[in-house]
Amino acid sequence: MKNSIAILLVLAFGFFLVHILQLYHTQETLNKTATYYNTNTPAEVGAANVVTAIVVTYRGLDTLGEVTVLFLTAMILGYILRQGGKEKVTKNNTSEILITAANVLIPGSIVLGVYVFINGHLTPGGGFQGGAIIGTAITLMILANPMRTIREGLLHMVESISGFFYVLIGLAGLLFAGGFLDNRILPLGTLGDLFSAGAIPLIYSLIGLKVGTEISSIIANINETGNNTVKL
């Protein structure tokens, strides 16, 4: 009985999707919005990666909101998981292979993460991706040694400072350039150089640090929440 309702709902949704698929035909030319972005990005923003130009400059306010959502998630998660006090956690040691592999991989992953967010305006990648790679390194660190205490004060400090400067750069755009989060407060430079596209590398580095520390504190919070016996 219960499953038949589920089957019905999934079938209805499937019918809806098939209908979309039948109406779909491959586009041959760009639509108006995409044409604007693709035509004007090199001159207006100076970023080689158009997706970065949209995320950081054209729709920069949305990205600020997105970073705020992630910040809120980290805060709410910390609040929920801390309720009822922190209990002493004992966890089993992990294997020698994991510990050795983690020691080899962690420095490399952090450097790769930093590379990805500094080059966000030139290559595929950016602050969110680089931050996620740094978060992976911290996750590996916790997996290899679950008893390790992560200095959350430091994480929160890095996060707050990068968030503060992100908003400050946005306000500087309001004062010295065309509007909030305008990247032209710094010279645009030559297209394709590391120091080009105005404030984009700076903003994306701050986003990278913020996302990296947020993911790390989420993982650390979940890790430090008591002994969880889970029945699957």
Binding site: I54, R59, L77, I80, G126, I222
Partner: peptide, 26 residues
């Protein structure tokens, strides 16, 4: 080049999806 707008949208959607999943797990 292809349309960059869906890629920018999905970049946002992935991050929000991560946040929602983390909250649900908590």
């Amino acid at each position: 080049a292809i349309d960059p707008v869906p890629q920018a949208l999905v970049l946002t959607a992935i991050v929000i999806g991560f946040g929602v999943t983390a909250l649900m797990l908590a």
